[in-house]
């Protein structure tokens, strides 16, 4: 067993006294996929927010590549090699597909190194590679705002990949996609896992099944169970958690 790429250790996050994360722990190895599932409000998105530095935990720590990043600024965490795709596509509608990727692929993100015209070869090669990877080669000069929903999702995944991060956080990458699109996305994610580690949130069990990766179930801000999708499916406690939720909703 090697050292984990990412360790989330006993992290607690509270919003006005409510613990969105309550002693959450998670370890992620290099070049692996981990799927995060759980009922609404389990704290999945808050966990990603915490890893990326958007939310500051009140207790616990986050360690990435052996360095603690718990209270670092978001942009510094990203420069260390973590990049996130948001639930709603966070692409820049007024830029072209290629320009969006250029922005993500630039190695020198410090302001004082931005006073140059044109792109270097490395960045251009990276953008070409990613365009092919996410299948947007023929749309590269289209404005990002004009893409279909599925293509927008792929573009944002492409941006995350182009940033050359080792750890990719994907928040519902297949949301709103057709059956075929979602199968392509799953194939893309498996391909990415050859070079990156991925933490993927999703609700769609058919999609999760295609990722063929270990699953972590979150509940009430804590890790409930980890295992294969098959094991999770047959766990009576997990069924109760999901059903309990459904019951609450129907009562409300």
């Amino acid at each position: 067993m090697g050292t984990p790429l990412l360790s989330v250790e006993n992290v607690t996050v509270s919003f006005n006294g409510f613990n969105a994360l309550d002693g959450m722990s998670l370890h992620l190895m290099p070049t692996s996929i981990r799927v995060l599932i759980g009922p609404n409000g389990a704290g999945k998105s808050t966990l990603l927010d915490t890893i990326i530095g958007h939310v500051r935990p009140s207790a616990g720590r986050v360690v990435f590549k052996g360095h603690e990043i718990t209270r670092m600024d978001e942009y510094k965490i990203v420069r260390r090699g973590i990049c996130r795709k948001f639930q709603a596509p966070g692409i820049l509608d007024n830029l072209t597909v290629a320009e969006n990727l250029n922005l993500a692929a630039r190695r020198h993100r410090e302001c004082w190194r931005s006073f140059s015209v044109g792109l270097n070869k490395e960045v251009r090669a990276q953008v070409e590679r990613v365009l092919t990877l996410v299948g947007l080669n023929d749309r590269k000069h289209a404005l990002a705002g004009q893409l279909s929903h599925g293509q927008k999702q792929w573009l944002e995944i492409g941006m995350v990949v182009a940033s050359d991060a080792e750890l990719l956080l994907l928040d519902e990458p297949a949301a709103g996609m057709s059956h075929d699109e979602s199968a392509q996305t799953a194939a893309l994610i498996r391909e990415l896992a050859k070079q990156h580690s991925l933490l993927v949130i999703d609700h769609d069990m058919a999609f999760v099944d295609q990722l063929d990766a270990p699953v972590s179930v979150m509940h009430m801000g804590r890790m409930l169970r980890e295992g294969t999708l098959e094991e999770i499916r047959n766990d009576p406690q997990i069924a109760a958690v999901y059903l309990g939720r459904v019951k609450e909703v129907s009562v409300a």
């Binding site: 942009y75 990203v78 820049l92 922005l103 993100r109």
Partner: peptide
């Protein structure tokens, strides 16, 4: 890019 989507740019590692 910051004008059009400040938080996206921040999460690409820009300040």
């Amino acid at each position: 890019a910051i004008r059009d989507g400040e938080s996206r740019v921040r999460f690409l590692g820009y300040h």
